[in-house]
Measured scan of single mutants.
Amino acid sequence: MTTFKLIINGKTLKGEITIEAVDAAEKEKIFKQYANDNGIDGEWTYDDATKTFTVTE
């Protein structure tokens, strides 16, 4: 398992979430669903070196 981080830079929601997953593709799906469930629609980036997804509205 690898630890992945999501950084949220939303208009109404900001924060960080850290979760373990098998791979980045699995985690991306979970993070995007979390963002969608919380009304966050923005630009996504991924840094493989730090295993960090960022979504910015």
Rank of each mutant, 00 (worst) to 15 (best):
D47A: 02
I7L: 03
W44G: 00
D48A: 08
D47E: 02
I40N: 01
K5C: 14
A25I: 09
A49K: 07
N9F: 12
G10D: 01
T12K: 07
T50Q: 04
Q33L: 06
A21L: 15
G39Y: 07
D41Y: 13
E28W: 15
D37S: 08
L13V: 13
I8T: 00
T12W: 12
E28C: 15
F53S: 06
N36C: 14
Y46R: 00
K27G: 15
D47Q: 02
T2V: 13
W44L: 04
D41T: 13
L13K: 05
T18K: 06
T50G: 02
E28M: 14
I8Q: 00
T54G: 03
T50E: 03
T54I: 08
K51L: 07
T3P: 03
K11Y: 10
D41W: 14
M1L: 11
L13M: 12
K32R: 11
G10E: 02
T45L: 04
K11W: 09
Y34R: 00
V22S: 11
T18Q: 06
E16P: 06
I40A: 03
N9M: 12
E43N: 07
L6G: 01
D23G: 04
K11T: 15
K27M: 15
K27Y: 15
T52A: 02
I40G: 01
K11V: 15
L13D: 08
T52Q: 02
G42I: 08
G39E: 05
D48N: 05
E20V: 14
A49N: 06
T18I: 10
A49Q: 09
K29R: 11
I40Q: 00
N36R: 14
K51I: 08
I17R: 01
W44E: 00
K32V: 06
A24W: 11
G42D: 03
T54C: 12
K5I: 14
F31Q: 01
T12L: 12
N9T: 08
L13Q: 11
T56I: 08
A35L: 14
I17T: 03
E26G: 12
L13H: 12
F4N: 03
N36M: 12
A25L: 10
I17H: 04
N36K: 14
M1Y: 08
G10W: 14
K29Y: 11
I19Q: 02
Q33W: 05
T45H: 08
A35W: 07
L13S: 10
T54M: 07
G39D: 05
I8W: 13
K5D: 09
A35D: 01
T52E: 02
E43T: 10
E43L: 10
D47L: 01
E20R: 11
L6M: 04
F53C: 13
T45G: 03
K5R: 08
D48I: 06
I40C: 12
E28A: 07
T52Y: 02
E43F: 09
K5V: 13
K14C: 15
A24G: 13
D41K: 12
F31N: 01
G10N: 04
G42Y: 13
A21C: 15
D47F: 02
T54Y: 10
A21T: 11
Q33G: 04
I30T: 03
K14E: 12
E20W: 14
K14I: 15
T3R: 04
N38H: 12
A25Q: 11
M1G: 07
E16L: 06
N38V: 11
L6N: 00
I19Y: 05
K11C: 15
N9Q: 09
Q33S: 04
K51D: 08
N9D: 07
I19K: 01
T45D: 06
I8F: 14
I17K: 01
K32E: 07
Y46V: 01
T45A: 07
T50W: 01
T45E: 08
T2R: 04
V22H: 10
I19H: 02
E26W: 11
D47M: 01
K29F: 09
G42L: 08
T18P: 02
V55R: 05
G42W: 15
K11M: 13
I19F: 15
A24D: 15
G15C: 15
E57F: 14
Q33E: 05
F53H: 01
T12G: 10
G39Q: 05
K14G: 09
I30G: 02
I40L: 08
G42S: 02
K14F: 12
E16S: 06
T3H: 05
L13A: 06
F31E: 02
K29L: 12
K11F: 13
E20Y: 14
I7G: 00
K51F: 11
V22I: 11
F4G: 03
I19P: 01
L13C: 15
A35G: 04
T3V: 10
T2K: 06
T3I: 11
Y34W: 15
N38E: 04
I30M: 06
I30E: 05
D41S: 11
T54Q: 03
G39K: 03
T12Y: 13
T18F: 13
F31A: 13
I19E: 03
T18V: 09
I8D: 00
T45N: 05
V55E: 04
T3F: 14
D23A: 05
Y34G: 00
T56Y: 09
E57C: 15
W44R: 01
K32Q: 12
I7T: 02
E26T: 08
M1H: 08
F4K: 00
I7E: 01
D37R: 05
E26Y: 10
L6Q: 00
D37L: 09
Q33Y: 02
E26H: 09
D41G: 10
G10P: 01
M1R: 09
G39H: 07
D23I: 06
D37N: 06
I30K: 05
T52K: 01
F53L: 06
A21V: 13
I30W: 13
W44C: 06
K5S: 08
K51P: 02
L6Y: 07
K14M: 12
D23C: 12
A24V: 12
E57V: 15
A35E: 02
A25D: 11
T12S: 07
D23R: 05
T52G: 03
T56P: 01
G15T: 14
T12F: 14
Y46G: 00
A35V: 06
A25E: 10
E20M: 13
D37E: 11
T18R: 09
